[in-house]
């Protein structure tokens, strides 16, 4: 190779037609969407001014007298998220065992996986809309909607985790004469446990966001308070509520992230620090993000 004289200048870049075509199609689709969508573009130019006005009303200054009420509404939302996630865990755990390859035959496995897939595809809000017709507008309805929504994700993450464990202990327990349940208990569960606990917590974080959304359609909690105040344009209260939502979500994410980190990495570490510091953290977070892709909430 060294005998070949160095070429003058760079070799020409190969033209990648398939890629070019794909880019062109994407561009056309985007342009078509812009062209066809039913929007008064003049609204867009007016938007910054209007938004600025609303922001000034919201935060200049916010109405702190509503803070206690806002906090108790938030607590209700968090309770909804916790209880819903817990029911989701209780229901999805045995189901995900039955959906694990190697433990159950296909005819048992596939229907369960199908149910998980359907539950993942329906947005929580739609589930809640359906539930409202049965149990009415209560926080319990919201919790149930979250429970049903989380069964899909938790179930899928569950069987994926169980299938991804190291086969060694599994074979060993099997060879020692364990029954299927015993294989599960001693061959699979010990290695799957940290991941399972971690994604339970992660799902709780998602549920906290979902519970705020469910409030928006009337299921109680901070979301309901928000939508009421937005509708009546009580902007200074909305400002307080926004601050509360942001702060509480961030605090819960930090706590939950710290615990998840402790479960998986085995040491206490603030997630912010880890994220700034290194590669492994980035990779792990990416994996979680990929898992979140299943449900569509981050």
């Amino acid at each position: 190779m060294t005998a070949i004289p160095a070429p003058v200048g760079r070799p020409a870049k190969p033209v990648r037609w398939a890629r070019l075509l794909a880019a062109l199609i994407v561009l056309l689709v985007v342009l078509a969407a812009f062209w066809h969508v039913d929007i008064e573009w003049s609204d867009l130019w007016a938007a910054p001014k209007k938004l600025w006005r609303v922001l000034r009303l919201m935060f200049g200054p916010p109405d702190w007298s509503q803070l206690p009420q806002a906090l108790s509404a938030t607590m209700l939302s968090v309770a909804m998220a916790w209880f819903g996630t817990l029911i989701g865990i209780v229901v999805s755990f045995p189901l995900s065992l039955f959906a694990t390859r190697g433990l159950t035959p296909g005819p048992v496995r596939w229907p369960i996986r199908g149910v998980f897939a359907v539950l993942r595809a329906v947005p929580e809000v739609v589930i809640a809309v359906l539930m409202l017709s049965v149990t009415g507008l209560t926080a319990f309805t919201g919790a149930l909607a979250i429970a049903i929504g989380s069964i899909g994700t938790l179930g899928k993450w569950g069987y994926e985790t169980f299938e991804a464990v190291d086969r060694g202990p599994l074979e060993a327990t099997g060879a020692a004469g364990a029954s299927r349940m015993q294989v599960m208990r001693w061959g699979v569960w010990p290695s799957a446990r940290p991941d399972v606990f971690a994604f339970w917590l992660y799902r709780f974080e998602i549920s906290v966001r979902a519970s705020a959304i469910l409030g928006l359609i009337g299921a109680g909690g901070i979301g309901k308070m928000l939508v009421d105040n937005i509708q009546f344009r009580v902007w200074d209260v909305v400002g307080v509520l926004m601050i509360v939502v942001v702060v509480v979500t961030m605090i819960i994410d930090q706590i939950s992230g710290t615990i998840r980190n402790r479960i998986i990495a085995g040491r206490w570490q603030l997630p912010i620090v880890t994220a700034v510091s290194r590669r492994r953290a980035a990779r792990r977070l990416r994996e979680h993000a990929a898992a979140a892709a299943e449900k569509g909430i981050l």
Binding site: L51, I213, L226
Partner: peptide
């Protein structure tokens, strides 16, 4: 940390309804 539906309801009230 602000959910999408919350942004939407804010914009609907503050800017305009619709897409």
């Amino acid at each position: 940390s602000i959910p999408d539906l919350l942004y939407a309801s804010l914009f609907v009230t503050a800017v305009a309804t619709g897409a």
